[in-house]
Design a protein around this nucleic acid. Sequence first.
DNA 1: GACGACAAA
Length: 850
Amino acid sequence: MRERDAANTRKLMERQLSKEEQEEITRRSQAMDKNDTSDLRKFSRQAYLQKRRDKKIDEIRDEILDHEYIFQDVKLTEAEEKEFRYKKKIYDLVKEHVESADDVAEYKMPEAYDMGDSVNQEKRFSVAMQRYKDPEARDKMNPFAEQEAWEEHQIGKSKLQFGSKDRKRSSDDYQYVFEDGIDFVKSSVIEGTQHEEDSDQEDIDEKDMLKRELQDERKTLPIYKFRDELLKAVEEYQVIVIVGETGSGKTTQIPQYLHEAGYTAKGKVACTQPRRVAAMSVAARVSQEMGVKLGHEVGYSIRFEDCTSEKTLIKYMTDGMLLREFLGEPDLASYSVVMVDEAHERTLSTDILFGLVKDISRFRPDLKLLISSATLDAEKFSDYFDSAPIFKIPGRRYPVEVHYTKAPEADYIDAAIVTVLQIHVTQPPGDILVFLTGQEEIETIDEILKHRTRGLGTKIAELLICPIYANLPTELQAKIFEPTPEGARKVVLATNIAETSLTIDGIKYVVDPGFCKIKSYNPRTGMESLLINPISKASANQRAGRSGRTGPGKCFRLYTSYNYMHDLEDNTVPEIQRTNLANVVLTLKSLGIHDLVNFDFMDPPPSEALLKALEQLFALSALNSRGELTKTGRRMAEFPLDPMLSKMIVASEKYKCSDEVISIASMLSVGNSIFYRPKDKQVHADNARLNFHTGNVGDHIALLNVYNTWKETDYSTQWCYENYIQVRSMKRARDIRDQLEGLLERVEIEISSNASDLDAIKKAITSGFFHHSSRLQKNGSYRTVKNPQTVLPRWVIYHELVLTTKEYMRQVTELKPDWLVEIAPHYYQLKDVDDTGTKKLPKGQGRAAL
DNA sequence: GACGACAAA
């Protein structure tokens, strides 16, 4: 019965889709007639968004069916029942909406979600937003119900609780615990700023009340007092640097002030964020404050989701998205104000944006620029923007006591453990946040802490240990947001993810060993490295601040104050100086910026890196010998991928296997988080993984196999679980793949499948990655963890080269050496690949053989 | 024996 329903729904949706597609095809041909590529781009985006919506609906339906199937004989708790009913209701609403939409012949975008009364933007996004805002709802929205069995187990492991719940804390008996306590000296207090009382608010349903309250709340923000002064400054100067500490309200308020002052009459106000979640949640908040629907006057734009319309006046977006918009609108004509928020983070995209907006501000005197940063080095921003005035806004933060160790600690892992236990038995209630460098370290400390607290039994209060890092399955991540039970204490073991990307309430103590992993790039060898480095002062202060969010906090630094003063750099080296610039160069070239060496970077990257990037792009024939963009280069720039991946896709046209190649490109660009290996089931996980390698096909084809098999199972979550594959990563790969598929049309590459000819696929890969070839050496060999081949191939091509604990090639596939000469004759000659001789590899390539 | 921190298009 239900299955038939589902089948009907699907048919319904398919019919609708094909209708839309027809619509779209006629529109596209009209656009073609006009030879208007921007229209073409718009239509392909619209079609893509439409398709994505249908896919999402399918996903919800599948979840419901899965749920019914799996739990048919299981008695559910009330909460689980409720969650299920909730999910079903959403589906019914959406279905009803889609069916009614089906009657409408017209193509409506981008307000497609907002027809009829049954479903509206607000509702739709309130659900999406809940995920990010409300920890309870986050659990309700659990889209991975099937995995719970496994995760239950993992959660049990990660949250084993020791100690006694009702043991009262006292500081008398901490001698029991340590023979090796650490001496800290309180050396400074980071001052808090006046904090006004937040009155607890009753839940009032009436819209007007809510709106009035929100308006009142706006007035309590520190920035409110500076409103008129700020607006005056904006009127007077073209560029302003704003220093606003956390909690000042700058991100939500400034765009609204500008709107109220009439700037939106002349064009949109853009506000860029380094992270997707931030762009979404801030936009949601502002639309609420203004009492408008999200996506109308206030909207956001991030990859895979464009929640804006013609009405949109205030647009929050990721910085990478604004960079992409530059490609279509090089003078940002539709904007009157651009606010670059969180500029102190100095992401790759913000650094490029700096150069671009500075440039256009010269010939667009009407364009206002606001550069907002949370740190003290505003002078630097000001200097860069021709001595722009600096506007300071106080924040709202509680004081944080900073403690340093008296003497340097030899082993920071051990020191961190001792400090956590010391805090646990001597300090008043409040959760602890420990900053560590990576997954492995977190797991180690997790185990040691459990071991040591277990021995203490009921002598101490309960200690909940919660690990968090980006690759941790989503459901386990959610656990850190659960409120700590009465009488217990939570200790969060986190990577740098907790420094900026997520905030955990209730943290009162921060333990900072002073290290993190930093990626850097050596342009000479083309090798990336990911090594543990000391953090910067800015980073240390950011970490300390994490303890003062909800009340006065304490930060324990596991180094001396002398170390802090003399050994730490002021700021972390900006990303642009430690990364492969091929993508940056391609973007700038396609914006028509030719003189890259003299491009006005705030912190110029090493010229060696620029040259290497130019060289690479030339080798990929994206640039000609005069350094101008070629047709291939222009096509490559359309793809949001690194140039070698883009080239691989462009080359797939020739080998008639674009279908397979975009799957591989998507899988490669989600990174290394596809397979997981639970510690207790490593052998099973490895075996499951070997299945995709049958026939010694190489890592690239194995990734393709993974994707295709998942697709054949109708994108089943259950299947992922059985094969030790992370659903989250697969869904991301699917999103990327859909996007790439849309872009293929834009650059006029036909989608063609050639699954039986693996050599054709490998040749396409080689066209992008011939740079990354490597030959087995007589002395020992290259090696790779990822590739489980038993017979070592003499020639391989790899995706990337990384130095961690050793040098690694990642994602390796065997290759016939004569392909190199065939595909990249400008780069390889016959003598280079002559297997019988002892000729060396071309310059630079020798390093690849490890 | 020993695997990758974070983010984005």
